[in-house]
Every structure is written in C-alpha cells, then in structure tokens.
C-alpha cells in the first residue's frame, strides 16, 4: 500500500514536465529547492530540537561559493556545488562546535548573528558580489532547458531524501531521537549528546549549501535575498505548517506553500505577513502541523 503510494508519487513527479507550462514548471523546480531546504532544516529542528536561523545563510554560502568559482575561476558548476556544500558543512561545524555545548538558545543566537553578518558582507563587497544588484553566474547546462533543470532537481532531491531517510533509520537517527526525547536520559545511557547535535547541525548545514548551490545555478542570478532572514522564515514556515518532526511534513509544506505563494502573488506585500499568521496559528494550536492534523482525523474515523 505504502509502496504503491510512493510509486504513484514518483510517477507523477516524472510526468510533471509534460503537463506543466514553462511558468508552472519553474514553480515546480523552486518547490523542489524548498523541499530540500525544509527537509534538511527539519533534520535539526524536528529531529534534534535545535533551532538554526542560518539555514538560508548556508544556502547563500553554497550559491555564492559555487557561483563565484564558476564566474571568476571557470570552475564547472558540478565541482563548484560540491565545494559550496563542503564549505557550508565546515562553517556549520565551526559555528556549532563553538556554541552547541552551551545549549539550544546559544545556537539560535549565533546562527541569527551569522545570517545577518553574511548578508552584510555580501551586500558590502560589491566589487565581488555586485551587492543587492545580484551576480550573474553561468548555468549548469550549456543549452538552457527548464525540463533538464527539473529532472536534475528531482534526481538530487530524491537522492537527498533517500540519504536522509537512511540517516534517520541508522544508529545516528536513533541517537537524534533519544536526544530530542530526553537529553539527560540519553547522556546517561552513553549517548554523546553534544556530538550528536553537532553532527545533525553540520550535515543539515551542508545540505542547505548543496540546495543553495543548485538554486543559484538554476536562477543564474544570485542576490543577498538567498541568505536573507525572510527566506529563512519561509523555510521555517514550510516545516512548521507541514509538520516538524515528521518526514513527510516539510515536503508537503514546501510544495503547498510554494504553489500557494504563486496564487497570492498579487498581494505581494501581504505575502510574508499572511504566511506568518498561518505559521503562528499552526505553531500555537497544532504543533505537529498538517501531517499531525491529518493523522488525528484519520485516527478518529
């Protein structure tokens, strides 16, 4: 039953480019980017209970590293994206190593600071980044085709989700959940809680770097909006509305919110406000999100 469902979703995902026009195909590609972002953020927030506000910033690290390597060094985007992923991971390891042992509040504060600082640096170093104007960078393919990009994003997203699923089902995933359930009991059962949290944060940050690198080479124009707090909020809202701590939640939340935001595009300036209010209501009254609500209804029947 479950397998059949997954196969169905997979089939639909493959057929998508043959049904959607260029505009909606673009929206589909962007939603895949958000699926990667929200799922990997869920890895730390939903599975180990730590709130990072630097997820968009790490996507920015990925996008700018790969973009600038391609533009100034002629490095192939494939290599550049790997470099961006690694750099995001290393920065995550460094930041996390400094503050995770001090507790969750410190991680949130430090990542918020990192996010602001990265935005300031990118905005100010205009000779390299062209500031808020944005930097034009080469794409992945020599011939531009949205269908190609769609399949590239789909393949990476699927690989990404399979990898995450494996991680969560491994001993490491077990340790993640033990730390989330009860930190003290986990540590007196032999779990190195600081290392577990650091591992979750580092891998999640690297994943954001990967998603950001791909995203940049798709848009071919990277701006300080990628590592902005507004972007961070969108990712957080997708995970919260979809359902944190469940595997499907952030995936559903990302796709739903990205498509929804295309419909409410006309209300431009109310966009973030509206999502904010929805996310606030969900976080306050249904902390396990749409997936949690669905399960509740299902059980009642």
């Amino acid at each position: 039953m479950k397998r059949a469902g997954l196969a169905g979703v997979f089939l639909i995902a493959i057929l998508v480019p043959f049904f959607l026009n260029q505009y909606w195909l673009h929206v589909a590609i962007i939603s895949l980017f958000y699926v990667m972002m929200a799922s990997s953020w869920n890895l730390i927030a939903g599975y180990t209970g730590q709130v990072s506000f630097a997820h968009a910033a790490f996507a920015g690290v990925g996008a700018y590293t790969s973009g600038m390597l391609a533009l100034y060094g002629g490095v192939h985007p494939a290599l550049g994206i790997i470099a961006g992923t690694l750099l995001a991971g290393v920065l995550g390891l460094g930041l996390g190593g400094l503050c995770i042992r001090m507790g969750g509040i410190y991680l949130s504060l430090t990542t918020l600071g990192f996010s602001e600082i990265l935005r300031i640096i990118i905005t100010n170093e205009e000779q390299w980044t062209r500031g808020t104007m944005g930097l034009q960078i080469p794409g992945v393919f020599s011939v531009y085709s949205k269908t190609h990009y769609y399949f590239l994003f789909l393949a990476v997203t699927l690989a990404f989700l399979v990898l995450m699923r494996r991680l969560l089902n491994s001993d490491t995933g077990l340790a993640f959940r033990a730390v989330l359930n009860d930190e003290l009991a986990a540590s007196t059962s032999g779990i190195d809680t600081v290392r577990v949290r650091l591992m979750a944060f580092t891998s999640s940050s690297a994943m954001a770097g990967l998603a950001g690198g791909l995203y940049g080479h798709y848009l071919m124009l990277i701006t300080p909006d990628i590592p902005s707090l507004g972007q961070m909020f969108l990712v957080l809202a997708m995970a919260v509305i979809g359902g944190m701590g469940s595997f499907a939640g952030p995936i559903i939340g990302a796709i739903a919110l990205e498509f929804l935001s295309e419909y409410i595009r006309i209300y431009g300036e109310y966009h973030l406000l509206l999502f904010g209010l929805v996310a606030l209501v969900i976080a306050r009254f249904a902390p396990s999100g749409m997936v949690g609500l669905w399960e509740k209804i299902w059980r009642r029947r």
Binding site: D171, N181, D182, A186, G190
Partner: peptide, 25 residues
C-alpha cells in the same frame, strides 16, 4: 548505569528503540 527518581524513558519511542539507545550508547 542509572535509573531516575522520576522515570525518564524516551516516551515517544518504542520499548525496543529505548533499549537500542543503551546498546548504541
């Protein structure tokens, strides 16, 4: 090894997973 005055099993995990944490630990 230790137990706690107010019991602290991992409430949202199965019994099997609870014990597996000790083994992984």
């Amino acid at each position: 090894g230790r137990t706690f005055q107010i019991v602290r099993p991992f409430l949202k995990m199965t019994c099997l997973e609870n014990v597996l944490v000790g083994i992984v630990g």
